[in-house]
Design a binder for these strands. Structure first.
Lengths: 113, 113
DNA sequence: TTATTATACATTGGCCGCCGATGTATTGTC
DNA sequence: GACAATACATCGGCGGCCAATGTATAATAA
């Protein structure tokens, strides 16, 4: 299913943090994993991901360790304690928000809910 | 709970269409109703709503009948058949999208889901 | 051998959606 | 007569996402 781009706005950081909850990962890997896990629903672009990762690093939500792996230089991102806290907040926020949207739809058009 | 503004992006039209599923309504009323139904989670601004309504009218998703009611001039918006179709599409899209986000979160951080 | 694809990271201009600010006008209330 | 609430409207600006583009290396195919 084709998803309107604007729906994604605001949830991309949540998706990135979720990916990192499992353990450290590098950027390219995160894009591939997210596409695979979501049946290509979420095809995150480099122009979206890398600036987000840089911001998370700048604000202390992730740490980076650049090293060789599989014959490649890769930048591995890992959640800090603060980053874990941000993830928990974002998950709460998402559940609250999506629940409210569902409530409104169910309330006004129950036959579609 | 305070919701990050950007989360709303892309779902505002869905909310507006949902409100109109019940029957014709005027702008100011829709803002009040939405706030009440969502416990003030969705405090839609005039600067958001009116341009959306104008666009929906322009594209044939709603029709407008301006008339007096309660000692006020009001512009009542009503869903067309095309508008009803758009609502159904948007609901499907929303359910698909929110389900996928939930899947990803549950998959990578099941303890938070 | 060379061309092509995949991997990996990065930046930037621009588009689009939302909203704060502001404006106008009328009705109800103190 | 002043003020709040109702009701509609517009516009500049901000912020998030991404298409386009660039660099570099490794693997694969021709």
């Amino acid at each position: 299913m084709k998803i309107d781009k604007s729906l994604l706005t605001g949830s991309t950081t949540l998706l990135v943090l979720s990916l990192l909850a499992e353990g450290e990962k590098y950027g390219y890997q995160m894009i591939q994993e997210l596409a695979a896990k979501s049946d290509n629903t979420f095809q995150m672009k480099e122009g979206t991901l890398y600036p987000i990762l840089h911001g998370l690093e700048r604000d202390g939500y992730v740490t980076v360790s650049q090293r060789w792996s599989g014959g490649r230089q890769r930048r591995y991102y890992r959640l800090t304690g603060k980053g874990r806290g941000l993830l928990e907040d974002k998950v709460k926020e998402w559940k609250f928000f999506s629940g409210k949207v569902g409530d409104v739809v169910a309330s006004y058009c129950p036959e579609l809910a």
